[in-house]
């Protein structure tokens, strides 16, 4: 979503993005003229008249589970967004019985919060696990 009109979105998709992605952008490109929605989400920059790089993860109940905001010159890491969604999907499925520690990604160990885990995380998790291999 940006403050550009749907006509500009079409031009961008048809003339540039479709050259990078087969078939063009597969999801809706939303137009937020005037930044009303960006303002609602706290990421509209009135001085520049643009939405900053805000990214919100919203669960199936419509609840915001995470967000990230960057200023314009730095792009985002899509893999990290996908990793977060996978982690949120797992904890949702496990209904809070499992949590994903720092560096978790699919296939890596989760933690099972309980009184016994208090003070014993070091037995289950080490700092190397915070990083990609």
């Amino acid at each position: 979503m940006s403050v550009d009109s749907v006509f500009v979105h079409k031009m961008w998709n048809d003339h540039e993005l479709s050259k990078m992605v087969d078939g063009g952008v597969p999801f809706p490109m939303l137009s937020d003229g005037g930044g009303k929605i960006g303002t609602m989400y706290g990421i509209y920059d009135g001085a520049g008249g643009v939405n900053t790089r805000g990214r919100f993860l919203i669960d199936p109940d419509g609840i915001i589970q995470g967000f990230e905001v960057l200023s314009p010159p730095v792009g985002r890491n899509v893999s990290e967004s996908l990793r977060q969604i996978q982690a949120f999907q797992l904890v949702r499925e496990k209904q809070g019985t499992e949590a994903t520690p720092s560096g978790w990604k699919p296939g890596k160990k989760t933690l099972k919060p309980s009184p016994d885990l208090v003070g014993n995380v070091w037995k289950e998790w080490n700092t190397k696990m915070a990083f990609d291999d």
């Binding site: 961008w12 939405n51 790089r53 919100f56 969604i85 999907q89």
Partner: peptide
């Protein structure tokens, strides 16, 4: 016309960016 609440039941990534023809 897209309404956010039409996506209840699905995970949504809502992504803002400064402008078309820039990177995302």
């Amino acid at each position: 016309e897209v309404k956010l609440s039409e996506y209840l039941g699905k995970w949504v990534v809502l992504c803002f960016y400064p402008g078309d023809f820039t990177f995302v």
